[in-house]
Design a protein around this nucleic acid. Structure first.
Lengths: 116, 116
DNA sequence: GCTTATACATAATTTTCTTATGTATATTTG
DNA sequence: CAAATATACATAAGAAAATTATGTATAAGC
């Protein structure tokens, strides 16, 4: 899923969608490369999203109507900004809630302290 | 990964190994079916391990020297008990620590409360 | 001018499951 | 007591979701 310097890649599988939806909830408009950099920054490079994972997922989210896109010219280069639709906002909330709940379950299963 | 009534399967991918190692850390000797039931019980059936996911992984762990097995006859049926090796104990600690750390990172990323 | 960063995209492959199938015994329930 | 469910193992085909590799191109820093 990601190039990951800290976590075994298997651990992080399936969280990419949730992470993207969360970032778009907070920032409203982001482009792909920006997302990779933000995640890298917020996680101290413990999670680094690869392009091969990111772009296909963004395209999928667009096809599902979760996000809309706007292409902007920056000099001679392009940026493709992604914005959550109404459906996307709902999806984001669901995904984040689901993950929070999942963490709770895993805390019980692994006998971890609530805040670790 | 699992038949999962509550969580989207993608979310749980990669956690099976950690869960198994944790259970074997606590109980020392478990057999496959017992593991599936224990996880079901501890998670209120939010996570249900399928046999297709479990047995190949157990075989893999044995091949890696993480667990040893002992086959026991129960009437005319067999049970294959799994026990962590020394290496397995170390691996278990690593995996559990890694997951705990991962949860911390995800909490920051998703802006969740420490104990949710 | 060369290297790194920015910025997109896709294809081949691998990993890791899900789903399906197979075999067989033990227990519960109607 | 017959049928359904539970116990208990195993493997194979297929799907999902990544990794890795490759491709194109501009901008910035040294």
């Amino acid at each position: 899923m990601y190039i990951c310097l800290m976590y075994s890649s298997e651990l992080i599988k399936g969280t990419l969608k949730t992470v993207i939806l969360k970032l778009l909830t907070d920032t409203k408009q982001m482009y792909g490369y920006e997302i990779t950099q933000k995640v890298k920054e917020l996680t101290n490079a413990k999670i680094v999203i690869t392009e091969g994972a990111l772009y296909p997922l963004l395209h999928q989210l667009e096809a599902e109507g979760v996000v809309t896109t706007e292409t902007v010219n920056i000099g001679k280069r392009i940026r493709k900004y992604y914005t959550l639709t109404h459906t996307g906002n709902e999806r984001a909330k669901e995904k984040i809630y689901e993950f929070a709940d999942f963490i709770q379950t895993m805390n019980i299963l692994l006998d971890l302290k609530p805040s670790i």
